[in-house]
Computed example of a mutant assay.
Amino acid sequence: MESDIRTVSGAWFAHESHDSIEQFVCSLPLAYFRFDPHDRYAKSTRYEMVTLFRIFVLQEIHGWNHETALVRSLLRFC
């Protein structure tokens, strides 16, 4: 997966108009990922696993240790 992300991100950020890491994470092509075997959140949340995965990626990229930072970041866009 790491090499896939490097390839996709390299192509994404090569475009002049692509300068947002958040937009990149939202655009990650996840259609070929199979989350079902690893979905320990099934029926315990109202969010789909793809959405949770994107949130976890943002958390790792930004080094957030708690959900509060995510909420603050999302509030900037509202």
Rank of each mutant, 00 (worst) to 15 (best):
H62L: 01
R54G: 07
R6P: 00
A11K: 13
R40C: 09
V8F: 09
H18R: 12
L28T: 08
I55E: 05
Q59Y: 00
V8S: 07
S3G: 01
H62N: 05
D19H: 09
L75Q: 12
V25P: 09
Q23E: 14
K43Q: 12
W64C: 04
T51Q: 11
S20D: 14
W64N: 05
L70M: 12
D39H: 09
V71S: 06
T7Q: 08
R72Q: 06
F24H: 07
I61R: 01
I61K: 01
I21Q: 02
T51S: 15
T45N: 06
Y47E: 13
R72E: 08
L30A: 04
Q23T: 07
Y47M: 14
A31I: 07
S20V: 03
R46F: 04
E22Y: 04
T45S: 15
R76K: 09
K43T: 11
H66L: 05
R40E: 13
F33T: 09
Y41G: 07
L52E: 02
S9V: 02
S27H: 04
F35M: 15
S3A: 05
N65K: 14
L75G: 01
R34M: 07
S17K: 13
L74M: 08
A42L: 13
P29M: 00
D36N: 12
S17E: 14
E67H: 10
T51E: 08
M1L: 09
H38Q: 11
V71N: 05
N65W: 01
A14R: 15
I5E: 02
E16G: 12
A69P: 00
P37R: 11
S27W: 00
R34E: 15
R46T: 11
A42F: 08
W12P: 15
R34H: 12
C78F: 03
S73N: 08
F77N: 10
I55R: 07
S44A: 10
S3L: 08
D4G: 02
S17W: 06
S3F: 01
P29S: 01
S9G: 03
L75A: 10
W12E: 12
I5G: 01
R72H: 03
R6Q: 06
F56H: 06
L74G: 10
M49Q: 14
A31Q: 13
E16K: 13
L70E: 01
I21R: 02
